[in-house]
Each structure stands twice: as structure tokens, then as C-alpha cells.
Amino acid sequence: MEILSRMRRTAAVLGLCAALVAVPAAAAAEPAAPKTPRTPGIPVVTTEQVMPHLRALQSIADRTGGNRAHGTKGFQQSLAYVKGVLDKAGFRTGLRPFTHNGVVGHNLIADWPGGDPDHVVLVGAHLDSVEAGPGMNDNGSGSAAVLATAVAMSRAGVAPKRHLRFAWWGAEEQGLIGSKDYVRKLSAAGREKIDVYLNFDMTGSRNVQQWLVVHDDPRATDAFEAYFAAKGLPTFDIGIGGSDHESFGDAGIPVSGFNTGVGDCLHDACDRIDNVDPETETLSTNAILGVTWQLATR
């Protein structure tokens, strides 16, 4: 998470809200059967399909000095891992270079073939960590959830009406550098083609009280709220500021998405894989998958 002060304020709000609304212990798990009928065609991601991506990112950090920050081997190997998975899944991938603090960084863009190129659903997360630690919840969790979503759509052979694009940003912890660079380099027509940008930052927090949903694009916001409501999970609405979606919202591109709140290990060495709750991460991944599928195919 890049803007620490804003997230601390969000944490304070959550502390007040937690006294009013608490998630039952069993609610954080993906239920054996959904409470409402699942839309035909939308696949389901299991814990075994998302957590291996987090384990891979943790392993990369462990063997490259303990973090995955901009300009490090940890980030470069994280980028190579995600790109490799996407290439095997049939996506058209490309690296978009930028320079920050004299060091070349990259955004990874992955396009799924098909869909109307004039109407794009863009789904993203930042891939880098801070230098203090491996960044498994911030934001290995969001990166893994978006990656598992992309793979699930590939396996299901999704045939989108809108064009479907996924992105992993670099140097976001340095000041939203990667996402700003991507937006800045879009032409006016290119910006108009993005119907909505969905952002996911810290999707596997332990002891989650509420899912913090970005309220901007009405259709996406309503879809996320409906998903969590159907499972009896409380939400809290947040605005455009505070994470990667800010770069898009500031440019007039509709945004939505969610996070699961700030934990004690934010930007710390203890943000390791055991700082991510597998059940929360799985539920979040299926929320991303379900809403993205709806927005892309209807």
C-alpha cells in the first residue's frame, strides 16, 4: 500500500466500525455451497489454485535478499514468474518500461484475445513490495488473486464481449509510479476505451472485519456489494484515493475494486506468507473473478 497515512486513517475507521459490525469466524471461508445461485459459466477458484502463487512470490523474496521492491532481483523475478504463468495460459503479454530514481522498472500487461477493443475491462494490482520485507499481503495477495483470476478465465475459455486486460504495476510503493506512467502514456482515445479499472490491494488480510469497496463506477461497485451481501459479509465504502486506482480515477477513468484492510505487518518484515489468510484470499479471488466475468461478458 503506497499511501500509509491514508491507510492508517482507514484502519482507525475500521476500528470504530468493527464494534458495530463483526464477521463471524465461519464467514471468512468460502462456503461449500453458495447462498445464491452462481451465474452459469463462472468458474470457482480454490485455495490450492491461488496460494501456490503466493508461495512462489515468498520463495522469490527469500532467495533475493528478503524483498521484491523496485529495482531489485526480487521484483524482476516476480515479474518473470507472473509473465511465465500468463504466457502458458494463452495471454498476450508485454512489459512496459519506465524509469524511476535512475532505475528501469516495468509494468506487465496481459491481454486476453477477443472482445471489443473499444470497451476494455482492466484488472490490476501492484506487484512490488517495500524494501523492508517480502510484501505478501501488500501486495503479493492482490497480485496472486488477479493472476489466479486470469488463469481461471483462461481455463474456462471465457469469450468476453468487452476486451479483457490484466496488469501488474511496478514501483507503486515509491509513489504510484508504474500506474501513473501507464495512464500518462495513454492517448485520450486510449483512456476513453477503458470502461472501468478494477484494483486489488491487500486481499488476504488476517482478522478481516470488512471488505473495503472502492465506490466509483456504479456497475462494478454494485456488483461487488452484491457479491459480499450474498455471503453475509459486511463492506465499507472507500473513495478513489489510497492505492493504484488513484492514478486512473484522477484521469477520469471509472474505477472500483476492494481491499481487506491494514494489518500490523504493513510495510514490515513480518509481511510474510503467514500474514495472509488463505480463506480470505480465496474468497477475495472469487469475488474478483465473479465480478470481472460479469463486467466482461455482459
Results as ranks from 00 to 15, higher is better:
S5T: 14
R8D: 14
R8M: 14
R9T: 13
T10E: 14
T10S: 11
A12W: 10
L14P: 02
G15L: 13
C17H: 13
A18V: 06
A26G: 06
A26D: 14
A27Y: 00
A29K: 12
E30T: 11
P31L: 12
K35D: 11
P40F: 08
I42K: 02
P43F: 00
V44Q: 09
E48S: 15
E48P: 01
V50C: 00
M51T: 10
R55Q: 15
Q58T: 02
S59Q: 13
T64V: 09
T64M: 07
N67W: 02
N67Q: 05
R68S: 07
G71Y: 05
T72Q: 07
K73I: 09
G74T: 05
F75R: 06
S78G: 12
L79F: 07
A80K: 12
Y81P: 01
V82Q: 07
V82Y: 03
G84V: 06
D87H: 09
K88D: 12
A89E: 06
R92L: 13
R92K: 15
T93M: 06
T93Y: 03
T99P: 11
G102T: 11
V103Q: 13
G105W: 00
N107C: 08
I109S: 08
A110D: 09
D111A: 15
D118E: 14
V121E: 07
V123F: 01
G124P: 04
L127R: 04
V130F: 01
P134W: 00
G140W: 07
S143E: 05
V146F: 03
A148E: 03
T149Y: 02
M153H: 12
A156P: 10
G157N: 06
A159K: 15
H163K: 15
R165S: 08
R165V: 13
F166E: 01
G170A: 08
A171S: 10
G175N: 08
D181V: 07
D181I: 04
Y182F: 14
R184Q: 15
R184F: 11
K185D: 14
L186P: 11
L186E: 09
S187E: 06
R191T: 10
L198I: 02
M202C: 12
T203S: 06
S205L: 10
R206V: 11
N207S: 14
V208K: 00
V208S: 02
Q209D: 12
Q209E: 13
L212W: 05
V213Q: 04
D222H: 08
A223K: 04
A223W: 02
A229E: 10
A229H: 08
P234T: 11
F236Y: 14
I238C: 08
F248R: 00
G249M: 05
D250L: 12
S256W: 09
G257M: 08
F258I: 09
T260L: 05
D264F: 11
H267S: 06
D268S: 11
D268P: 01
D268A: 14
I273V: 15
D274I: 09
P278H: 10
T280I: 13
E281G: 06
S284R: 01
N286C: 02
N286H: 03
V291G: 01
L295G: 00
T297R: 00
